[in-house]
Amino acid sequence: MVAPIDQVAPTTPPVAPSQRRGRGARPRIRARSGPSGVGASENRERARGLDRLWIVLFLAPFLLLYLGFTLWPLIATVYYSFFDWSGMGPIDDYVGGENYGSVLTDDLFWLAVGNTLLFAVATTVIKLPLSLIAAIVLTRTWLRGKRIFRTMFFAPLIIPVAMAGLIFTYLLNPSNGALNSILRDLGIVERSFDIFANRWSAMLAIVLVSVWQIFGQYMIYWMAALQNVPDEIYEAADLDGATEWQKLTRITLPMIRPVAVVILLLALVNAMHVFGLVVTLTGGGPGTSTYVMSYYIYQEAFATVPFDYGYASAAALLFSVLAFILVTGQGFFVRRAQRVRDEYGV
């Protein structure tokens, strides 16, 4: 039943090929597999003669940028983290694990880690189910005005995140912002409140504005996933007299599960980048209580004199390791849950 996903989805964008098959015991890294992958390896041939030169030329742009801006930075981050370095002069002040020691004992670092993880989990938990529901509703054939509604939900994507943050600082401000004045007019609150005066309400604001901004992107992901499900299956279900709800829970959701895992991973990792919204909405405040990791790194490395690249690198690295554990751990649990489900044939 589930095999057709492989057939129709050689290239689902949010889907890293390795994860697309939620199941199967083949090596996970291989790009292709499954029934439609027959031609895949046959396509691949050994290069001869002049073709070798072309291959090098074709790989060069990606490889150069990849080496310069992904691989080398990863290695350099490790290297810097062992030095006391302000970015100027030679890197010669080796301090061993000292940076790590002071990062690990820095309360602000742990606060930033906590906030980032909280943000990542909260936005993911809110935006994924909601955008899935929106995607399901907005792909119903009977719905009128689909295009208008889709455009409405996509629209926030076109505002740069930082600008969205500025708009919301005004809309949410206590003296004459729209939210407070509406709530006052409706008699829901007596006096204006400042949502940014408290750590938790400020975090909530960041989470909600972020969900609002990025919602459309995840809706697109889900729509693509939904379109992966072959129509024939629904037609067969119709013949069997299945209800809409049965079709949703027995066909749609199980069929998009492998894609859902990848969307989940993307959502978590992307959420860990959160930066612009924090800068514009709270500036890390009140005090330092809404610091997130990227803001912490930015402050340590570029905004607070003396610059401290070594220290910031150690912090970045520790955080990446934490994030990696979280993401792979989550992948592990999802896979295990899938195995359990497979055994029961759900």
Binding site: P73, S294, A316, F319
Partner: peptide
């Protein structure tokens, strides 16, 4: 493997480069 590296964490070496 590098699909999921957070950009913020490697911005310093990019800056240096």
């Amino acid at each position: 493997a590098t699909l999921f590296v957070p950009v913020a964490s490697i911005i310093i070496p990019q800056f240096v480069l």
